[in-house]
Write a protein that binds this DNA or RNA. Structure first.
Length: 445
RNA sequence: GUGGUUGUAGCUCAGCUGGUUAGAGCGUCGGUUUGUGGUUCCGAAAGUCGCCGGUUCGAACCCGGUCUUCCACCCCA
């Protein structure tokens, strides 16, 4: 049976060059993580649905990929739901596993499960694919990679500062000019409390978060739909535009203790982190349901791409798994978007697609045998090298090297066999030299 | 999940209001070049026009369904 080769919606294949580029991003970020003392962990792609469900809000639950139970699952299915063809209700009796939606909830599970084996404060990073049954759009896929660093078990604000520095350093290493925006859920809560509309905290946040997209007018509209009065809306906008922490703390005085606390936290973080591109953004609301303190959002300058990294502090996540209350704080790099940005700016290192240093041209027979011996010597000297496997046309072999971005080729013909030397050609300049083994290794090293 | 949009050679796209054997550029392969790639020049292969069904004497083109792409909403990396 012949099948047409095609991909699942929202997933992609990666060509070797793309993998090189992705690895470059990951390695760059990883190096920074390690420099700051983070250790890498791994968890399964599949988790129990009970682990995942209810952590991302109702919307998030809908986007979970569920896995059908093995075996004769229908015989164990709930009969009534089956009869009624109630897809939503039947799920519980035919599916108990799902694909992870992010790396943070699995981390919470992991930390509680291994709390006696871990060394706290636990600083880990985790890179891996996650899945969301979202409708794909540009830069949004159903399978994508997350690249997270989190600190569990410490409420110190030093951690926030460290993560901010990691963001700054990683993007600097990638050669990207970014703006790192910070806010605090406590400040948001304070603003909303001060205006006296706390019952609609979540809805208001969602509306405020759209500021960039739909503008002040659009947000006003949404707030009116939430039955806020004109005075309340005016007051909200006024508070959300105060970027001076001192002034903001003053407006919280005697009105919102939590707001004041948020201002204190924010001040403390920023004082230890005097980078120019780190700014307090009071209207920044973005973040998942579980964030409780500081939140981050990083946007690139010069490219319309939106957020390329985000994060926040979450105080209650481990509680859901019966663990003692351990606060966590973490950031996540949107590597798919970072890739697109680097691509658009063509900001890749020059040697990104080079892996093999030298190709030995195959002229067959004796040349091949000599080439084979040479190949072993080169590899013993740690020079990434290949021998073309077929006695193919020279044109074919040369263009193979060309396409693979191999900087050197070696010719071994009659002349070279006789003298025991090799002709080394530099592909970029066309320059060609006859060298002995020692010299050859010296040049290629 | 809601509304819209896209789908023609490996890739990017033409194909006028439905009319006989569906085109181009790039790429691939072969030759020009019997030990020198990235430039020329010549030639070739390659498409049941996303899939299924319908209307019609006749469909890449019209209609319905389905899948896919992208966009907006929801939400989000």
């Amino acid at each position: 049976m012949k099948v047409k080769p095609r991909l699942v919606k929202g997933t992609r294949d990666f060509l070797p060059e793309q993998v090189n580029k992705r690895k470059y991003i990951l390695n760059t970020i990883q190096t920074v993580f390690k420099k700051f003392g983070f250790q890498e962990i791994e968890t399964p792609a599949i988790e129990l649905l009970e682990t995942l469900t209810g952590k991302y809000g109702e919307e998030g639950d809908k986007l979970l990929f569920k896995i059908l139970n093995s075996g004769d699952f229908l015989s164990k299915a709930d009969d009534q739901h089956l009869q009624e063809k109630d897809s939503k209700a039947i799920t519980a009796s035919i599916s108990e596993k799902g694909l992870r939606y992010d790396l943070t909830v699995p981390l919470a599970r992991y930390v509680v499960q291994h709390q006696n084996e871990l060394n706290f404060p636990f600083k880990r990073f985790h890179i891996g694919p996650v899945w969301r049954a979202d409708r794909p759009q540009k830069g949004r896929y159903r399978e994508f990679f997350q690249c997270d660093a989190d600190i569990i078990g410490s409420t110190s604000l030093l951690n926030e500062t460290e993560l901010t520095l990691i963001l700054a350093e990683a993007f600097e290493a990638l050669g990207l000019s970014v703006k790192i925006q910070l806010n605090n859920r406590k400040i948001l809560e304070g603003i909303i409390e001060t205006v006296g509309v706390s019952e609609q905290y979540k809805e208001i946040l969602i509306a405020i978060d759209k500021m960039d997209k739909i503008g002040e007018e659009g947000v006003t509209n949404e707030l009116q739909n939430l039955q806020l009065t004109a005075e309340q809306i005016t007051e909200l906008f006024a508070l959300f535009s105060i970027t001076d922490l001192h002034a903001l703390a003053n407006s919280f005085k005697d009105k919102s203790a939590i707001g004041e606390e948020g201002c204190e936290e924010m001040t403390s973080i920023l004082n230890k982190c005097s980078k120019k591109n780190v700014v307090f953004a009071p209207a920044l609301a973005r973040g998942l349901d579980y964030y409780t303190g500081t939140i981050w959002e990083v946007v690139v300058n010069d490219v319309a791409m939106g957020t390329i990294a985000a994060g926040g502090r979450y105080d209650n996540l481990t509680e859901m798994f019966g663990g003692q209350n351990m606060s966590g704080v973490g950031i996540s790099f949107g590597i798919e978007r970072i890739y697109d940005v680097l691509e658009e700016l063509n900001q890749w290192p020059a040697d990104i697609t080079t892996s093999t240093k030298v190709l030995i041209i195959n002229f067959g027979n004796e040349g091949e045998n000599v080439g084979w011996q040479l190949l072993q010597s080169l590899r013993n000297s740690n020079i990434p090298s290949e021998l073309f496997p077929d006695d193919a046309k020279l044109k074919k072999q040369m263009s193979y090297a060309d396409k693979k971005n191999i900087p050197y080729v070696i010719f071994i013909g009659e002349e070279e066999i006789k003298t025991g030397k090799y002709s080394l050609k530099a592909m970029t300049t066309g320059e060609q030299n006859v060298l002995g083994l020692e010299e050859l290794i010296e040049v290629l090293k």
